[in-house]
């Protein structure tokens, strides 16, 4: 009898897994869970490719390539987002005082309002991607503004932070990573030099 009982074990395990799926699908339906927002989605993967108008010059197209080559942060913002107002002055500070390279993703916004915002509040961004329909936001897995991503010198996403930036957050999460990324970049440049008989000529 005990033997027979054991044979129900696979069924029981399956029931639990199926139950899990059912619960999760309900949560997806009700918007409580979105597999796209998992922190893993892009970590250590290249920034998604895109081609979108630049907010500052709407007839100009920005592509993924424009964000590459340097350690940078990508900040998702919108004029309709209250926390973005709070965050903005800190971004200005980062750009002017600490020389942080910041790219903006203007997310589901009106171009007029957004341009006016930059004129009035200052523009900490090297450039802004105008993501009117939130398509890039979807690829990034943005759940809401503001959100900030850190890219390494290869253009791989290394960190994602949801919520407004401030000094405390910066010191805790971004500063240590920046140092690490700078070391990686150094090591990378070094390896370029140290490779047997290596050297970039020309």
């Amino acid at each position: 009898m005990v033997q027979r009982f054991k044979l129900f074990l696979p069924l029981a395990i399956f029931a639990i897994v199926a139950g899990l799926f059912y619960v999760m699908m309900n949560r997806i339906d009700e918007g409580e869970y979105n597999p796209q927002t998992l922190p893993s989605a892009l970590i250590n993967k290249p920034f998604p490719s895109f081609a979108m108008p630049q907010l500052e010059q709407l007839d100009k197209t920005v592509i993924q390539a424009d964000l590459l080559g340097e350690i940078s942060i990508v900040n998702v913002w919108a004029t309709w987002c209250p926390s973005c107002h709070v965050e903005h002055s800190y971004l200005n500070y980062l750009a002017s005082e600490r020389n942080v390279v910041i790219y903006g993703v203007n997310y589901k916004d009106e171009s007029d309002a957004a341009q006016k915002w930059l004129q009035e509040k200052g523009n900490p961004y090297r450039l802004n991607i105008f993501d009117k329909d939130g398509k890039l936001g979807l690829d990034l897995g943005v759940t809401g503004a503001p959100e900030t991503y850190m890219l390494d010198h290869r253009g791989f996403v290394r960190l994602r932070y949801q919520g407004p930036l401030n000094e405390a957050v910066w010191q805790e999460k971004f500063q240590p990573l920046i140092e690490q990324l700078q070391q990686e970049q150094q090591a990378f440049l070094q390896s370029a030099v140290n490779w047997p008989q290596a050297g970039v000529q020309g």
């Binding site: 033997q3 044979l7 696979p10 069924l11 199926a18 997806i28 339906d29």
Partner: peptide, 28 residues
């Protein structure tokens, strides 16, 4: 989601019934 619910139901039917059959009929 509609598709998800359909496959999940189908999954439960196929896997659930075969494992039930297994539990009752597999030699002990």
């Amino acid at each position: 989601p509609e598709r998800g619910v359909f496959i999940l139901a189908f999954l439960a039917l196929v896997i659930g019934s075969s494992l039930t059959l297994y539990a009752f009929r597999a030699p002990t």
